[in-house]
């Protein structure tokens, strides 16, 4: 591996707390290795800030392997930055070049208020899940044998693909309407495709969509930006499926 290093200018959104106004601040940073992950670059930046007696930048992160969905960041205007099918923690500095200016902002949406700097509140996503993102089965263990109900492989695979959503919110941040349709439709689809989810399908889709609207997310106008920026490649087909499910439920609600 070569060891190319680069000098960069970071323009970072700084905001003291939810009530204060924020603004972009510029910082130079040097000697960044191309093998660093983006968040490791942020760690180096923060260590330098601490040494200099400044307050480090707050950002959400945890697993650093692209699965927990904690990390966010709008990097040069794109959710999770310029690479495709990665979260910010998997983005590597080899995607940038010496002399670049990198603008780093929080995910922006009415339903994702800023808490501090780059940290936003995404509990609206949790509340949508509370409204119906489950199968009503008790955890007794006395359910029927797992193999008593075969599921066609293609349905199981499609359900899995929908279920790989990590709830990061990139879809919302990428959408000009700040719509959460891709997120909500991923969960609705997972259950709609499996026999276990069919029993409550109608209530689920109606309740989840209702909660989505209450949280202040926008509508879907089929621009497809969400699918492009989704780190897990959740397909727009899910939105189409949710629309069908919703129509069916709205018409045939008993």
């Amino acid at each position: 591996m070569s060891d190319k290093t680069m000098n960069l200018t970071l323009k970072i959104w700084r905001q003291k707390d939810a009530k204060s106004a924020g603004k972009l601040e510029s910082y130079p940073i040097s000697g960044i290795s191309e093998h660093m992950s983006f968040l490791e670059m942020m760690d180096v930046f923060n260590e330098q800030q601490i040494s200099a007696g400044n307050e480090p930048v707050a950002f959400d992160h945890d697993c650093r392997e692209g699965i927990c969905g904690s990390c966010s960041l709008q990097i040069n205007g794109e959710a999770h930055g310029p690479d495709r099918r990665v979260t910010t923690c998997q983005l590597h500095m080899r995607m940038f070049k010496d002399g670049d200016t990198i603008t780093i902002e929080p995910f922006r949406a009415t339903a994702f208020p800023v808490i501090k700097d780059l940290v936003v509140d995404r509990t609206s996503f949790d509340r949508i899940q509370h409204a119906g993102g489950f199968v009503s089965v008790n955890t007794s263990g006395n359910t029927q044998d797992a193999n008593s109900l075969p599921v066609p492989k293609v349905d199981a695979d499609n359900a899995f693909d929908a279920a790989t959503c990590i709830g990061c919110g990139a879809c919302v941040a990428s959408c000009k309407n700040a719509s959460a349709m891709l997120f909500v439709s991923a969960k609705v689809s997972q259950f709609a495709l499996l026999p276990q989810g069919k029993v409550e399908a109608k209530d689920r889709v109606l309740n989840m969509v209702n909660q989505m609207d209450l949280e202040g997310f926008g509508n879907c106008t089929n621009t497809g930006a969400c699918e492009v920026e989704c780190p897990k490649g959740i397909s727009l087909d899910n939105i189409a499926r949710m629309n069908r499910e919703y129509m069916k439920a709205a018409i045939k609600k008993d």
Binding site: V135, G141, A146, V151, A156, F160, F191, Q196
Partner: peptide, 15 residues
């Protein structure tokens, strides 16, 4: 029982 439980919850295991 865990597998039975998870399948009932809609966990999409490989098939």
């Amino acid at each position: 029982n865990i597998i039975d439980q998870c399948v009932a919850q809609g966990v999409p295991f490989a098939r």
